[in-house]
């Protein structure tokens, strides 16, 4: 099982983001560096959810915002390590929608369950596989770094 190392500030920020947007889903990017064990995330980047038609159960980051997030990552000497979003009143498990729309192989997808406005469980899933046709999610261990 791979390990996702999250700076405590990132862990707190992404959970707070989910509480702020409740009952809608939040979303954003995780910036960090690769290690043999998994991603080491030192910064996060909040993004807007452009699925305003169904924000309580869907999220999408505008591609142009992703382009700008990548620019910021390069400026900081970091890579996009993965993404996060929230599941309002729903478990912190990937859904069929999450799986169908996941295309960043080798990256971490972090999901926080937000129950009645309060962040509860946060899980991370590595999108493993060599190509789109054999992709699959693998549960990761999250280590919170001080």
């Amino acid at each position: 099982m791979s390990i996702l190392q999250l700076a405590q500030s990132v862990y707190l920020s992404i959970r707070a983001h989910g509480e702020e947007t409740y009952p809608h889903e939040c979303c954003g990017a995780l910036l960090g560096t690769a290690t043999p064990e998994g991603w080491q995330v030192s910064a996060s980047f909040r993004a807007g959810n452009i699925r305003t038609d169904s924000a309580h159960n869907r999220y999408q980051i505008a591609p142009l915002e992703l382009v700008k997030i990548e620019r910021e990552a390069r400026r900081q000497g970091l890579d996009i390590a993965g993404f996060y979003h929230s599941h309002p009143d729903h478990p912190a498990q990937w859904s069929q929608t999450d799986f169908a729309e996941a295309h960043w192989l080798g990256c971490s997808y972090v999901i926080t369950s937000v129950a009645q406005g309060c962040a509860t469980v946060t899980n991370s899933f590595l999108l493993a596989g060599a190509r789109e046709e054999d992709k699959h999610f693998e549960l990761e261990t999250i280590h919170i770094a001080e």
């Binding site: 159960n57 980051i61 979003h85 729903h90 169908a100």
Partner: peptide, 14 residues
């Protein structure tokens, strides 16, 4: 030129 795979998902549940 930036190549950017899309990012989307969600519970899909009402």
């Amino acid at each position: 030129l930036s190549i950017v795979p899309s990012i989307a998902g969600g519970t899909g549940c009402n």
